[in-house]
Design a protein around this nucleic acid. Sequence first.
DNA 1: TGAACCCGGACTGTAACGGTCGTATACTAA
DNA 2: TTAGTATACGACCGTTACAGTCCGGGTTCA
Lengths: 151, 151
Amino acid sequence: MLKLTKKADYGLMALKYLAERPDTPALSAKDIADAYGIPAQLLAKILQQLTKKGLLKSHAGMNGGYALSKPAASISAYEVILAIDGPFFITSCTKGAHGCDLTPSCTIKEPLARVNETIAGVLKSISIQDLAEHEHPSGQAPEPKLVTLTI
Amino acid sequence: MLKLTKKADYGLMALKYLAERPDTPALSAKDIADAYGIPAQLLAKILQQLTKKGLLKSHAGMNGGYALSKPAASISAYEVILAIDGPFFITSCTKGAHGCDLTPSCTIKEPLARVNETIAGVLKSISIQDLAEHEHPSGQAPEPKLVTLTI
DNA sequence: TGAACCCGGACTGTAACGGTCGTATACTAA
DNA sequence: TTAGTATACGACCGTTACAGTCCGGGTTCA
C-alpha cells in the first residue's frame, strides 16, 4: 500500500509539536499525546526510539520530558521514518540481504530501486521545520523543490 | 515500511514479461509463473484483477492466456499498483473518507499529501515499456525525468 | 519519601498479506 | 462430442506485522 505506519505519523507529529515550542525545556510524552489524542504509552515508546537514534534528548524525573537534540531545520522526515520504521525499500527483495530469492530474472527491481531513491530524496529534503512552518493560512510560495529521477 | 506488496511486484513482472513478447498472442498464467518461479495460482488471481481493470485481455481455452490490452508504453506502473493494491496514501488518515479521526490539529498530513502526489507522479511517469527496455548491459542515457515538489 | 517522569520488555488482538484448494466455466482441437 | 487446457472465483488458512496495553524498574526533583 505504500503507506507509512501510524508510528511514523505519530513521531512526525510529536517532533513537529516540539519544533513549534523551542522555548520550553522539555515536554512529557503525555503532554504531546494529550495534545493529539493519541495513546500516551505508545507515543512514549516512539519517543524512546527517537531518543536512542539521537533525534531527541530525554530527561527523566519531575518536569522531565523530551526535547529536540538539534535544530528542527536539520532533522529530515527521512531520519524520523527511518528511526521508527527501519530501512524501507519499495521492492520486496531488498538485494541487500542476499539478493532476490526469486529467479535471477527479476529485473524490475532495478528501476524500482531508482524510484525508491527518489522517494528517499524527497523525504530527505523535508525538514521538521518545514512541517512546523506550514501553519500559514494561505498566500505564500513555499519554495518548490526539484527532484530528478533517472530510470 | 513504504514498500509495495509482492502482488504488485508480481503484477509488474508479469506485465514486463508480456511487454517483452509482443508477438505472442497470449501467455498463460502458468507460463509466466514458471518463468519467474512464483506461485501460479497466486499470479493467476493477480492477472485476473488486472484483466478486470482493463490492463489485460484474457482468453480462455486451449492456447489461451493473457495479453496486454494496450501498448506497453501507455501502461504506467501507477496503474498496475493501483489495480492490485488499491489506492494508496502515505498518510494513515486519507482525508477522503471522513477526515482525520484524530484531533483537528493533525497538520502534518497536508505536507505529506504533497509527498504522496509526488510519488504518484513518479510512478505515473514510468511505463511498462520503460521496465521492459531496461535490458541494456550498460552505456546509454535512459532519459532522466524531472519531478517537482512544493511543500 | 513520594510524585512525576523516562525506560524497556512482554504480551495481546486484529488485520492484512501471501498462498492454497476446489470447483465452475469457457474455449479449442481432435 | 469429448477431452484437455485455460480462465474465473470464492473459500480457506498460516504467518507476520502493526497498534496498543500492561507492568516492573530506574531517575530526578520537590
